[in-house]
Design a protein around this nucleic acid. Structure first.
Lengths: 258, 258
DNA sequence: CACGCCTGTCTCATTATTTGGAACACTATC
DNA sequence: GATAGTGTTCCAAATAATGAGACAGGCGTG
């Protein structure tokens, strides 16, 4: 990715640095995790804090600020995809009784946009904005499988494979083979590839046959269901994915993988 | 507010501009809504788009980008307040069967952090990140009432009063009187002041007696409940607010109203 | 079809801002 | 009360942002 946009590029790099950290960090600690000179980093942090993008606690440690939450609310709320998909998620959740995910591909990762969890109502941001690997999740593979070849190559080029479970596909070859099947089949399976005991089926949301903009999945723990049982929901899942694709203002979504 | 932070200040101004818009806008349209020169605005938009903070559709219109959602997810997820409050919201929601809100004061407005809706499960960002007026919502008044005098003056100074319903308090004097009562009483009422047919009771979450960091509310439509009925939930509400205050790492929260 | 009009993009000399090493101040620790 | 680590401030040099204007498409209108 182009890390060069002058001050703006540096500012979002710092934002990422702070937001990605699992706990609030002070100047010195942040300084060790990037290579901005101390004075520069200090100035950036201060400016971002004044703008509300970061906040600083009494101990001087920085964490992500409320303004980000405001901005994201607007981002999410004006997203056609999220809007259009919402009732379909509700319906899928009600009819299947399973956990539903809506995800998009963003910078080589899967980014979850929304979720329904039949079991217990779930906190707001517990899923939206969360990111995960593309190569071993149902939603990720469903999107990858329908990317045009060039975009797929680009996505694979910067992919590093980590083995999460015994079933994780850990080579480009294995993944490519699975993607070919998915393309032929029209939907993806996750056979405990990301998390042990969790399986899912996923369908792409296609703007055109070679332009996947997102994916929709039905997930269940292996103790509650088998893959064959999940397949019973396939018609519903595919219907929802197609309906969302039809309703969404698809032209608004740029080609993925950038 | 200080609108001066060089490039960073301009960048977030543009972010706000785009995110606040209710629909994607193109360069010319955005140019009409701020006074950046065309070329400057163009450069800012491009840089922010390259960084993923904005996205541009095929028509050239800009809207908020996914990176904001990612960042906000981290912001929200590492927020002690949201974390600590989550189980309490669940409990309150379960025990009262009503709608629960958790909100904070941010830049003179109420910013909702989380929500539980017994009736129908609700989309992720449908509430988190949403902003509303402080002077006519239960959560807003609950916070305002416990601000130290100087902070309250500062907050009131830039407040403009809009009449949403016949019950809306539309003068500083009326508001001050209500705040005094709230301070004495320990909790706030919203008697259809913001939305017709909606009432609520709200309690502040206090770090110290003069340092409110957030507020918690129980809301109901007038056709389902009266204010006296809602008051039955007061013990629970206050207990939850106190528990959250006790658990949260309160020192991490700066004084409000900036 | 050609014309004008509006929109987005690019250029470049000028200007203002960012830069970052180093000095300074402040605080905790031993 | 010395010491090490941290946050803050300075300031000349270097760099990046600036913005008026030129250029290029596209779109609809006459």
């Amino acid at each position: 990715m182009a890390e060069e946009d002058g001050t703006i590029g540096k500012a979002v790099a710092v934002l990422d640095l702070v937001a990605t950290a699992d706990r609030p960090m002070r100047l010195a600690e942040l300084g060790a995790r990037c290579d901005f000179p101390k004075a520069t980093l200090h100035r950036l942090l201060q400016a971002l804090t004044r703008q509300g993008m970061l906040m600083q606690d009494a101990a001087g440690a920085y964490s992500a600020g409320l303004r980000l939450v405001r901005l994201a609310h607007n981002a999410w709320n004006t997203s056609d995809l999220a809007h259009v998909a919402r009732p379909h998620l509700d319906q899928l959740s009600a009819e299947t009784g399973a956990t539903i995910h809506l995800a998009q591909l963003d910078q080589g990762q899967v980014l979850y946009l929304d979720k329904r969890n039949a079991a217990h109502p779930v906190g707001m941001f517990s899923a939206a904005g969360k990111v995960g690997p593309a190569y071993c999740t149902g939603v990720g593979k469903a999107i990858l499988a329908f990317l045009p070849p060039a975009a797929l190559e680009q996505a694979l080029a910067r992919q590093s494979f980590h083995r999460f479970t015994p079933a994780t596909l850990t080579t480009p070859e294995d993944l490519r083979a699975d993607l070919a099947e998915i393309r032929a089949r029209g939907h993806a399976y996750d056979r405990e590839e990301h998390e042990r005991g969790i399986i899912c089926i996923a369908a792409p949301i296609l703007a055109t046959p070679t332009h996947p903009i997102a994916a929709l999945s039905v997930t269940a723990p292996t103790r509650d269901a088998t893959l064959s049982a999940l397949k019973l929901h396939l018609p519903l899942l595919k219907h929802s994915a197609a309906a969302i694709a039809a309703e969404a203002a698809l032209w608004r979504f740029p080609v993925q993988g950038g």
